[in-house]
Design a binder for these strands. Structure first.
Lengths: 337, 337
DNA sequence: ACGCTGCCTAGAATCGATTCGATCAGGGAG
DNA sequence: CTCCCTGATCGAATCGATTCTAGGCAGCGT
C-alpha cells in the first residue's frame, strides 16, 4: 500500500496526494477531501524509508552506549531514558549502538551508512577514537562527557572536579581533616574515564588547598565492592573521618561497611558525594550530595545535536553542569574516633 | 559519495560495483580489484536507506519500552541491554520507542511507517492494545511477558506463578506457616501487569494447597517503599515469619526494615524471591531466589522475532522460563517470634 | 473575442541502491 | 570460416516517496 495506490483510488496523480500530505502546495478542497478519505479508509502512512532517501534525512539519531556486557549504571540508564524521551518530543527516533567492546560493527554501520542524522556519544574517554572517527566522517555529534581536548565539538558534562572539590570544602568546614575519595573502578580510571580523572584532580586540589590529608581509593560499581572497599579503607586509614564519592552504586555497600564498623552517620563519620537523587535519598541517613541532573543533560544533548544538524557550520557549544550540593543528613561536625 | 561515483572512478557501471559488493554475480578478478581499490580509497559504504528501500527490509527492529518518566527497573534495563546485544550479534540495529503513556506517536511511527522489520514489546499488560494494534498491521512481533490470551503470538515470559509457588513451598518445608507476598506496586497490579497478577495467583494457590496463612502486600519499586511496606507488614501481621517477593528493587528496603525490627535473617525471619542475580547477591545475607535469566530472555526474544520475520506463516512459538531456586542464606527453619 | 493571470493538477526527474535481461567479446567445436 | 556458448559487463527498471516544471482551464479585463 503506497502513495501510488492512494492516487489510483482517488483518481489523481501521486504528486497531488503528496501535496495533500505535506500541505506544501494548495490543493482544491473537493480534491483534498476525496484524497483524505481514501487515506483515512486505508490507514495509509508514507513509507519512512522512501521519504528518508528522497529527503536525505532519516529523522533518526544514533545513541552510542557502552556494551551491554558490563551492566549499565543507573546514571547511564538515566541518560538513555532522557535522550529517548527528548528525541520523542521532537519526533525523532533513536537507534541504539552498543560500542566500545569488540563488536564495533554496529558503530561503524550507524556512522558510515548514513542511517542517522547525528550521533550522541556516551561514556567518553579522555582519548576516544570514536570521536576522531566521527570527526573524519563529518557526521554531526554531541558527547555526554568530554575528551581531554574538548575544543571544536559540542558536549554536555558534569563538573566532577568542581563538585568533589566543593564536597571536600564542605567536609573541611565541618572540621574533617582526613578525608577519603571513593572513586569509580580502577579499570575505568586506568582506561581514561574522564569523571574518574577529574574527580581525582578536584580532590587533590581541594585537599592541598586546605592542607588536609587525602586518601584516594578506587571501587567497583556495586554494593559488594563498596563494602569491601570501605572495610579496607577503615583498616588502613583509621584516622579518616569522612568520605567523598562519585560512585553512587557503591553507596549501599559503604553504608553496610560503616554500620558493621559501628560508625554512626553523621555522628561518627560523614559521607558526601555526587549522585542521582534517588541514590542519595535511599542512603541512610539521606546523603548530602550534588544531584546529577540526568534528565536535563539528555535533553540538552538532544537539542545541541539538533542545532549541529540544522546549522553544521555553527560553532560548537558546551554545557558544564555544576548542580548545588543538597544538604541532607549524612554530614556533620567531626568527632574523634 | 554514492555507488555511481565509485563506478565512474573505476570506469565501470553501477551494477558491476554492486556485484562486487554483494558477490551475487561473478566479476573478473582485475575489475574486482580495481573497484575494490576505489572503494577502499574513498572508504565507501552503501547507503543503508537506499538499500532498505530497494530490498524492502530495514535490518532494524523496534524495541518498545516503558516511557522514561517512570524509571526503568533493573530488570527492564537488563532486557534492553540483552536485546541490543543479541541484535548486534546478527547485524541488526535497534530502534527504541517509549510507549505506554499517552503520547504514542513514537509507537505509531515505528509501526505504521515501516521503519522496522519487526517489534519486540516489553512490559506487556494482560490486556494490551499495542498488541492488537500490531496484530492488525501484520508487522511481526514478539512480546516479553504475555497477555491474558497469549495464543496466536510469540512470546517469552517468566513463570512467576510457578516460581512464587515454589518459593512458598520451600518456606513451608522449613516450617513457616504465615507467609507474606511482597508484590510490585499497587498501580502496576491494578493496571493489569501480568507478573503481579500471576505472582498473586501462584501465591494464593500454594498457600491454600499447603493450608498456610498468606498475606499479600503491594510495594513500590524502590528501597524506601520496601522499608515502609515491611514496617507496616510486621506491625499488622506479627505472626508472619517469612516473605516471598518478586520486587527486587524493594529488597534493600526489606533488609533495612528487618534490621530495624531486630529480626536476624535467616534466624528470626526468612526471605525468598524471584530476582536478578546481582540483587540477590547484594542482599545480606545472600538471597535465596530464582535468578531471572534476563540475558537469555532478550536473546531468545530476538531469535523468535527473526523466525517470525523470515517465515511469517510459521506457527508462533513461546518460551516460559522457570529457573531453579538458588539456595543461598536468607531462608532457614522457622523460629517463634 | 482574445490574451493574461492564477490556480490546480499531471508528468517526470530524483534520491541510491539492487537485479533482471540484454549485449558483447572471445574461444572452442564442427 | 562460421556458429554457438559462456562469462563479463552494461543499461534500464524498480523500490516509494518529494518536488520541479509545464500545461490546462477558468475567470476577467479590454
Amino acid at each position: 500500500m503506497n502513495i501510488g495506490e492512494i492516487a489510483r483510488r482517488a483518481g489523481v496523480s501521486r504528486s497531488t496526494v503528496s501535496y495533500v500530505l505535506s500541505g506544501k502546495k494548495a490543493v482544491s478542497e473537493p480534491t483534498r477531501q476525496r484524497i483524505q478519505a481514501v487515506i483515512d479508509e486505508l490507514d495509509y502512512r508514507p513509507n519512512a524509508t522512501a521519504r528518508a532517501l528522497r529527503e536525505g534525512r532519516t529523522h533518526t539519531l544514533g545513541l552510542v552506549i557502552p556494551p551491554a556486557a558490563q551492566r549499565l549504571t543507573d546514571m547511564q540508564l538515566g541518560f538513555v531514558a532522557s535522550v529517548v524521551e527528548a528525541a520523542a518530543r521532537v519526533d525523532l527516533d533513536v537507534l541504539l549502538s552498543p560500542s566500545g567492546g569488540d563488536h564495533d560493527r554496529s558503530f561503524e554501520r550507524i556512522v558510515t551508512s548514513r542511517r542517522v542524522d547525528g550521533v550522541i556519544l556516551m561514556e567518553i574517554r579522555l582519548e576516544d577514537d570514536r570521536v576522531s572517527r566521527l570527526r573524519q566522517t563529518g557526521l554531526p555529534f554531541v558527547t555526554i562527557g568530554r575528551t581531554a581536548e574538548p575544543g571544536g565539538m559540542s558536549w554536555v558534562d558534569v563538573d566532577y572536579a568542581g563538585l568533589i572539590s566543593r564536597c571536600v570544602g564542605h567536609l573541611a568546614d565541618l572540621g574533617h581533616r582526613q578525608i577519603a575519595l571513593v572513586n569509580r573502578s580502577a579499570e575505568l580510571v586506568a582506561s581514561g574515564y574522564g569523571p574518574g580523572h577529574r574527580a581525582q584532580a578536584g580532590f587533590a586540589a581541594a585537599v592541598s588547598e586546605r592542607g588536609l590529608t587525602g586518601v584516594e581509593v578506587c571501587c567497583g560499581d556495586d554494593a559488594s565492592a563498596g563494602e569491601a572497599c570501605v572495610e579496607e579503607l577503615l583498616a588502613a586509614h583509621p584516622q579518616v573521618t569522612a568520605i567523598a564519592t562519585i560512585n553512587e552504586a557503591a553507596l549501599p555497600g559503604i553504608q553496610r561497611a560503616l554500620d558493621a564498623a559501628g560508625l554512626a552517620v553523621p555522628r561518627d563519620f560523614s559521607v558526601a558525594g555526587v549522585a542521582a537523587r534517588h541514590w542519595a535519598e535511599d542512603f541512610r541517613p539521606a546523603l548530602t550530595a550534588a544531584d546529577l541532573p540526568m534528565l536535563e543533560m539528555g535533553a540538552d544533548a538532544v537539542s545541541l545535536l539538533m542545532e549541529c544538524i540544522a546549522t553544521p557550520q555553527t560553532p560548537p557549544r558546551h554545557r558544564l553542569y555544576s548542580p548545588p550540593i543538597s544538604l541532607r543528613s549524612s554530614t556533620g561536625p567531626v568527632r574523634a574516633r
